[in-house]
Design a protein around this nucleic acid. Structure first.
Lengths: 251, 251
DNA sequence: GTACATTGCGTCAAAATAACACACATGATA
DNA sequence: TATCATGTGTGTTATTTTGACGCAATGTAC
């Protein structure tokens, strides 16, 4: 696929790429969808390029659909990275070598690149990680155990998480990361994981329910150790409303 | 200047530009620095291009320095705009016509452009708006009276203001927009203007002083109608600290 | 002086927050 | 079967923060 782009580079916006930080939540861990490329022995964020006839947001959605097989995902642009030295001659050449593309033909790829960062929140269980080609490995990796990444992808990932952490104070999070039915303790773990901070159980319940985006179901989680916790769903309508209007207005 | 770039386009990142929303505050109004170009009868945001050997942040700083004659300005990237149709063939051709550049040589300029938006906060009285060339008009315009802008610049401006409004809940603002000595009512007007909302005088004083970033001076504003208000400065050190750590943590 | 607008400081009730106590359910263990 | 450990649901309390005010002080205009 990348090879196809390289050979038809005139159809793509030059020097511009998209990188997606795709977050999922599972086993009380925040996971990131990463790709191990065959070109180099390092991991990378799933990314892509911008067709000349496509909006950048659409290009990001495309990357996401291709990689997770999912539609209607929560996706947000958070920053654009454009240090001169973020490009790494070594990486570019490794890719060209791999595809056996001569230097001249690969010039489009080894030019300076600026990349637009998007982060996505997806339901771990519904996403089906898709390889770009057979040599690739695509995997959910705990955000605390992310290995070395190519180029400045670690910086991009960190910035994404930082943004998410900030946005937690401005908007509700969870609808996109949790299964349809979930428990308050699960939601709390999600918050704790993102914030990297312990929260008081009882105060969390009060605050989260006061937002008014939760529906308490007449149903308890089954097959669990200890007392069975209640199940909840999000009230989609109110959730969207709070998403739009924001949480703590501050002033 | 633009002509120089057009004739040396191989030294610039293709299809990528920088646009700056430069905010100032004066007469209790939030002002935006706008440019009326000679190419078209419309206003635009001050912008520029990205030299191949310059970081995008540096390119943004350059635009700002050139336009305000100021150093060390508060500058923040807030979003990147890349709809396909944000480019407007009409505008590109108008510019080429103006410079009498033949279509072929101007191809670099009429290609699809993606633009990175930065917003800046500057001290209105210290900034000295600088023309790019003699045909240009550069002016501070009240944000409530912004005329029609080229391309999607209105959208960019709106997004910048929206971002600033949100960030008001996360960080202190004022150090960059007010003169060194200022009064609480002035600071309040700034907040009210940005938020487009009236605040209670007495509650504002309490909240703003509780943040701990203000130094009350033993000095009152002179030559004013009515009771002379006290003068304050920002405690730079604490201000920076709050800027870094954020305001209302929420969780 | 008086009228008027604006500033500085203070009050008070309501709401939000932080810290904590206790009872309940369930699987594991004795 | 009784007890324990662990995580859950609900409630209480003191403290802090917020929102909505009152009022005196200070300056200009007349």
């Amino acid at each position: 696929m990348l090879k196809g782009i390289l050979l038809n580079s005139e159809n793509y916006q030059p020097g511009l790429s998209i990188d997606c930080v795709i977050f999922g939540f599972h086993d009380n861990q925040l996971k990131v969808l990463l790709i191990k490329t065959p070109y180099e022995n390092k991991w990378s964020l799933p990314g892509g390029f911008v067709p000349l006839n496509q909006d950048i947001d659409t290009a990001a959605v495309t990357v996401l659909n291709e990689r997770t097989g999912m539609q209607g995902i929560f996706l947000r642009q958070f920053a654009t990275f454009g240090r001169v030295k973020r490009n790494d001659q070594h990486f570019g050449n490794a890719v060209l070598d791999y595809f056996k593309i001569p230097e001249e033909a690969g010039k489009w790829f080894t030019q300076r690149f600026v990349t637009i960062g998007y982060y996505a929140l997806v339901d771990f269980l519904k996403a089906v990680p898709q390889k770009g080609n057979n040599q690739e490995i695509i995997e959910w990796i705990d955000h605390k155990e992310v290995p070395e990444l190519i180029l400045d992808h670690k910086e991009i990932l960190d910035k994404a998480l930082d943004t998410l952490r900030t946005e937690l104070n401005l908007m509700p999070v969870g609808y996109n990361l949790l299964p349809e039915k979930f428990t308050i303790p699960e939601l709390q773990k999600l918050y704790e994981t993102i914030l990297d901070k312990k929260l008081d159980r009882r105060n969390f319940l009060r605050k989260i329910t006061n937002i008014g985006i939760l529906n308490k179901l007449d149903e308890k989680k089954s097959n669990v150790a200890h007392k069975a916790p209640n199940l909840y769903t999000f009230d989609k309508e109110k959730y969207e409303e709070v998403l739009k209007n924001g949480l703590n207005q501050g002033w």
